[in-house]
Write a protein that binds this DNA or RNA. Structure first.
Length: 287
DNA sequence: CCAAGGCCTGAATG
DNA sequence: ACATTCAGGCCTT
């Protein structure tokens, strides 16, 4: 009985390093064994003992305590590949981050890589975000929608975003004008939410799935980027046949349906474990 | 509905 | 050095 309890407690421990270094967040840095991260208009600090603190005491379920992680892990462990990935990274978790920051982050991410995404987001924050001091360190909060909406395209481009500058401004404008209400979308279904956010230019299937999984509480989202396609081809060629060479919108939809059929309603967690596993296999760099 | 080509940028490759 | 390729896609034709 004692042993079982210990095991259960052990399973609940969050592996902060691996969770931050799994492609879901970008504005985090480690300092003196503490992690500090920009989350919208707040700064979060995760101590070496795994406790999380909000600089502004804004309520957030960043660690997704609402999830029954043991149930989820049981649910997604449908095949030897996933079981192995889960076993390799037992404390890997999906965070629930600020939706607007997440939206802009993944617009910036398209056709890019982690280092460049991080660099662009840091520059955007430095240029358009509020300077803040916390634990004797300087931070810049993530830009508010209105500040990106009123910025010029060239100002945004100066942050290294390239052609995505138009998308960023457009997205910020939509949020500012409440043409889209990200908080409300948390209560919407997967399909409804996807339809809404895909209206933003620069947001396609993959980017939408990232935004929904990492900030809008849609755990059936399963972002299909180059890596995940490669993983499916490598380990799941028997289960998920790719009909076309390029992943068209229709193909993406069909594939997602098959994926949810296989992994279940928490498929997004499976994606996170598989992505982490394969990127580590190839020793890809994180933050 | 699918295929092909273009797009900012910067690090990696030859 | 300098040119080319490539990277967590998306949009237009």
């Amino acid at each position: 009985m004692k042993k079982l309890l210990f095991k259960m407690q052990n399973k609940c421990i969050i592996d902060v390093n691996n969770s931050i270094n799994s492609g879901q967040v970008f504005l985090w840095k480690k300092n003196n064994s503490n992690w500090y991260g920009v989350n919208g208009q707040d700064i979060l600090k995760i101590t070496d003992s795994g406790k999380i603190k909000s600089y502004k005491n804004i309520r957030t379920d960043f660690f997704r305590k609402k999830d029954n992680i043991e149930e989820i892990i049981k649910s997604i462990s449908k095949d030897p590949i996933t079981k192995n990935a889960v076993k390799q990274y037992p404390g890997l978790r999906i965070f629930e981050q600020d939706p607007f920051q997440c939206l802009i982050s993944f617009i910036v991410s398209s056709n890019s890589n982690i280092q460049k995404i991080k660099s662009s987001l840091e520059k955007l924050s430095r240029k358009f975000g509020i300077k803040t001091e916390f634990d004797n360190q300087e931070f810049f909060l993530f830009p508010k929608p209105e500040n990106l909406a009123k910025a010029s395209i060239n100002e945004i481009k100066s942050c290294g975003t390239g052609y995505r500058a138009n998308f960023i401004k457009d997205a910020a404008n939509r949020v500012m004008l409440k043409k889209i209400n990200l908080e409300n979308l948390k209560e919407y279904s997967y399909q409804e939410t996807k339809k809404e956010i895909c209206q933003i230019s620069g947001v396609g299937n993959k980017v939408a799935d990232c935004i929904m999984l990492f900030s809008l509480n849609k755990l059936e989202s399963f972002p299909l980027d180059r890596w995940m396609i490669r993983i499916l081809e490598k380990y799941y060629s028997d289960k998920f046949q790719l009909e076309t060479k390029t992943i068209t919108e229709k193909q993406y939809e069909i594939l997602h349906e098959k994926i949810v059929e296989h992994f279940g309603p928490f498929a997004g967690y499976a994606q996170q474990f598989l992505f982490k596993m394969e990127r580590e296999n190839y020793q890809k760099k994180w933050l």
